[in-house]
């Protein structure tokens, strides 16, 4: 069994995000970066499979050199090795480009199972793992809260609004992971030390047969702004009976929302 885990390094969304003077980006100075939390659940799920029946786990990421830190974290959790698809700083790559590059990297590894978080918490795009699956023509399922493997198949619980689907997928397959499936472990110090010695290969877009033009972003952010702050902030006073009456009147007569 070989499992590829796709991880993304993202800014911690608890940070303060300031709109940059160009109004097309945010100020990145001083942002703290973390592994996207859902990817951490995906990594944990891979390690649980490894512990239960043995598996080789390769962690794959795309980005700059600083991604190595994120990948080492996953190796400290238990992944065996890493492949970083290294991209030149400043190159803006769209989801299609990212997926092509990751698909090429995954294909080289020929894993039985590809796991990734259901979305990255920076742009919440929820699309790269699905794209990787489609580009490799693999069956896939998203937002999975339970995963079982048996007889060359994955049986998954896929969350939908107000319910779930139980789906059986033949391996190899791509599965994106929802939180609640497990509790990611904290790497122990000896494992953090060990992880530093695990192999981490770097490949370029060129190595994967892709030109900068092929991965060019065709979905550029052309403007960023702070979200609306024009809330009324009206505290409705009086005793409880008066206050609820007034709130209902406001919602019904003023806002016409009730």
């Amino acid at each position: 069994m070989k499992i590829a885990v796709l991880v993304k390094r993202v800014p911690d969304t608890a940070s303060v995000f300031k709109v940059a003077p160009d109004e097309k980006s945010v100020v990145t100075d001083g942002l703290k970066y973390i592994i996207s939390p859902y990817d951490e659940h995906a990594a944990e799920e891979a390690i649980k499979i490894q512990e239960a029946g043995g598996a080789e786990i390769v962690v794959i990421s795309l980005g700059g050199d600083d991604c190595q830190e994120t990948m080492r974290t996953v190796m400290a959790m238990g992944a065996d090795r890493g492949v970083l698809v290294s991209v030149p700083a400043g190159l803006s790559i769209g989801a299609h480009g990212v997926a092509q590059a990751l698909a090429a990297a995954v294909k080289r590894e020929a894993p039985d199972l590809v796991l990734a978080g259901k979305q990255a918490v920076d742009d919440d795009a929820s699309q790269v793992p699905e794209r990787v699956a489609e580009l490799l023509d693999l069956p896939h399922a998203s937002v999975v809260s339970k995963l079982e493997l048996a007889d060359g198949k994955a049986l998954v619980d896929r969350e939908i609004e107000g319910g779930k689907y139980r789906i059986e997928l033949p391996l190899p397959a791509v599965v994106t992971i929802e939180k609640g499936i497990n509790t990611p472990r904290y790497p122990k110090l000896p494992n953090i030390m060990k992880a530093k010695k695990k192999p981490l290969d770097t490949v370029t877009l060129e190595d994967l047969g892709l030109s900068a033009d092929a991965v060019k972003n065709q979905a550029e952010v052309t403007k960023v702004a702070s979200p609306r702050t024009d809330r009324r902030n009206q505290i409705v006073g009086g005793d409880t009976a008066d206050a609820v009456k007034e709130v209902v009147r406001l919602l019904r007569d003023e806002e016409k929302a009730l």
Binding site: G94, A95, H96, A99, D124, A125, S126, Q127, V128, E130, R131, V132, A133, E134, L135, H140, S142, V143, R158, E159, I160, E161, N217, Q218, A219
Partner: peptide, 23 residues
């Protein structure tokens, strides 16, 4: 951008080789 709609859109975008603004 429902649970299933997002999966559909992402998959179609890949098959057409195009970009998608999700959610």
């Amino acid at each position: 951008a429902t649970a299933l709609g997002k999966e559909l859109c992402a998959s179609v975008a890949a098959r057409l080789g195009v970009e998608l603004a999700q959610d």
